[in-house]
Nucleic acid binder design. Structure first.
Lengths: 198, 198
DNA sequence: TGGCACCTGTACCATTCAGTACATTATTGA
DNA sequence: TCAATAATGTACTGAATGGTACAGGTGCCA
């Protein structure tokens, strides 16, 4: 019996892709073994809790990635404008310019949402709040910043849906470009900011 | 053996809810019989093609509803502003103010997309184009109208994702209100339209 | 060289899956 | 009244589902 992959952490990205493509219910153990090359023995050795534990581990890994590379910079980077531009660039890279779907979004739409409610809710809530932080730092009024952030986060999700529906990834890149304009415009003019229509 | 429901058309909405809640793969015949009250005998009598035919019929029904109540008015109603307001009101009603999910969007994210690619693609493409039509009719420049329409359609999808993820339907109603402002603002000022940042 | 913890493949389990076959019952129209 | 058709419940199929049990193999450290 040849030892194959070794590290549990190594297979998390593969697991993620399976859940992304098939959803939680559609991700059968057959699909998972095919993609990871691991048999049931290994799978249940690494994840005694079965599919549920696998999905939870994947969600945790995604959460950590976004927390580190997107949310935290939005909260702490001094130059808020640069933080927002970084967010957009990393979002574009992560979702492969619209060719990759958001696992958390997929889970949110399904009945699985209830099983991972805390993780799903927290992911989007922290994204929204971190972005609002950065917007306030570059001079947006607090009230508007919150709604602008929500609008941006939801636009990213919607763009992923539409890009896949139309089989046209440019929908996603076009949306990111629009968001950059929308979020970073008018930085110097406080009065325009106060009265501007979102 | 008592005859129960009778019309095939009567059970389409029920079928739709099952697919909406569980996705195509997750919608087992057990779920379907439970929701519709129809046994396998009746189900396969009405839909000899099985689940695939059921889903296709549901998609066709949804398509017809939107074509009639949303797309066509956007294209033909003389008062473009009223058409857009009607679209938003009917969208709000259809999605139960954010408590109901978009079946076409759910299908778009899953692997089922390929099986119903034509229906999924056409639904969103026609929505986008019909909305762009109305925007042009109220004075938006053609180039901007197309992108504004895409932005609106994708915002609706994203709002549904986010509303369900955060378990907060107000995300959806807030988004529709924002869209109304965004789409209908500045109607009289051509110069502002030409230079406005989307 | 030995032992031991860690991996891994295989066989197996009960359950559920979509779909089929068919006999039986309702309904309809002549 | 009586066939013909439409609708329905039931029993069944073979395959796939997630999960368990476990024996055996592998690498590592003493």
């Amino acid at each position: 019996m040849a030892r194959t992959v070794s590290e549990r952490a190594d297979i998390l990205p593969l697991l993620g892709e399976v859940f992304r493509e098939h959803g939680f219910e559609g991700a059968s153990l057959a699909h998972i073994t095919a993609r990871t090359g691991l048999g049931k023995g290994s799978l249940y050795h690494f994840f005694p809790g079965g599919k549920e534990e696998m999905a939870a581990a994947v969600l945790a890994e995604i959460d950590l990635w976004f927390e580190t590379n997107v949310f935290a910079p939005l909260r702490t980077e001094e130059d808020g404008g640069a933080a927002i531009r970084d967010m957009l660039a990393r979002t574009d890279a992560y979702f492969r310019s619209g060719r990759r779907v958001c696992l958390v979004g997929v889970f949110a739409l399904g009945e699985v949402r209830d099983r991972f409610a805390e993780a799903v809710q927290s992911y989007f809530a922290r994204w929204r709040e971190a972005l609002a932080d950065a917007l306030i730092r570059i001079g947006h009024p607090a009230a508007a910043a919150s709604e602008e952030a929500e609008d941006a986060v939801l636009a990213i999700q919607g763009a992923l849906v539409l890009a896949r529906a139309l089989d046209d990834a440019t929908v996603f890149t076009r949306t990111l470009a629009r968001l950059e304009r929308r979020l970073l415009q008018d930085l110097g003019d406080a009065r325009a900011l106060a009265t501007r229509i979102i």
